[in-house]
């Protein structure tokens, strides 16, 4: 694989994903409406219910909408990661996946191209939401727009890789709703996106607290939360990068014609 070939292939895959995204106005709209509703409606309704103590990275008491903004950025990445999974399943059903997988490039690289394309879209959508959030005074410093970029990218990669992995196991588009129920919702709710973890522990939900502490999505949200305020959360970063690598390697093995699920099922890619 030459560098030029690698770049052209990335251009092909990412270009197609971005062109598809631009055509689907509804997708951009729904990716923004969903977290915006949470920010405007949910946060307003719960404004006085939660007493949020001073916890890092915050250095004073904060309003609830300020607290959930990083979690909602994570939500944008999470939904788009799953959307990438849906795109893989769709391509498999439509036959485009065969075209991709018969290209003269290592399979891991072809999947990496898909992952990068999805991640770029995730980050773009996250910034679009950040712009909306700014209108509602969520108190993100201007420098935070820049410092959050690596965190959004790492989170997007991790959740995109999870989407890739899931696409190995989702056989039909019809099964996608199941993924929503069993992956997106538990991942989002059993995390620090909507409430700080100490709240869970304080309320006696010990198992939920432990699960939330282990949830890679929690770490993606915390990485974003710290990065928005120019701080670096090493633990979160290690968990996010480690999870991204694990999910991606598992997805590559899943798509390996000699080893993965495809071999056992006898189902074409």
């Amino acid at each position: 694989m030459t560098l030029t070939h690698a770049w052209l292939a990335l251009h092909a895959v990412a270009g197609r994903e971005i062109a598809k995204f631009v055509r689907q106005y509804g997708r951009l709209l729904s990716s923004l409406v969903r977290p915006s509703l949470w920010l405007i409606v949910f946060a307003a309704g719960f404004q006085n219910v939660f007493g949020v103590a001073i916890i890092p990275p915050y250095d004073s008491y904060i309003e609830y909408r300020v607290y959930i903004a990083p979690g909602l950025l994570g939500m944008v990445l999470l939904f788009n990661g799953m959307q990438s999974s849906l795109s893989m399943v769709y391509d498999r059903e439509m036959g485009m996946m065969r075209l991709l997988l018969t290209a003269p490039l290592p399979r891991w690289y072809l999947l990496f191209c898909k992952l990068m394309a999805g991640t770029v879209l995730s980050v773009l959508q996250a910034y679009a939401f950040l712009a909306i959030a700014a209108l509602f005074e969520v108190g993100i410093p201007l420098a935070g727009w820049l410092t959050v970029l690596p965190a959004l990218f790492a989170g997007g990669l991790m959740l995109g890789a999870l989407g890739l992995l899931l696409s190995v196991y989702i056989k039909q588009l019809e099964n996608f709703a199941g993924t929503m129920n069993f992956v997106i919702f538990p991942m989002f709710f059993v995390s620090s996106a909507l409430y700080p973890l100490w709240k869970l522990r304080e309320s006696g939900a010990e198992i939920v607290w432990q699960l939330a502490s282990l949830n890679p999505f929690t770490h993606a949200v915390e990485l974003i939360r710290f990065a928005l305020y120019g701080q670096f959360n090493l633990t979160a970063c290690l968990v996010v990068i480690g999870s991204a690598l694990t999910f991606f390697v598992a997805a590559v093995l899943g798509y390996d014609p000699g080893r993965g699920l495809l071999r056992r099922s006898g189902r074409p890619a």
Partner: peptide, 22 residues
């Protein structure tokens, strides 16, 4: 295995790039 939303030439361009032609 055509992307029906893409143009005819765009479908071929996608394939060409996957094969390292630009």
């Amino acid at each position: 295995t055509l992307d029906l939303d893409l143009g005819v030439a765009a479908n071929l361009r996608y394939h060409a790039r996957l094969h390292g032609l630009g």
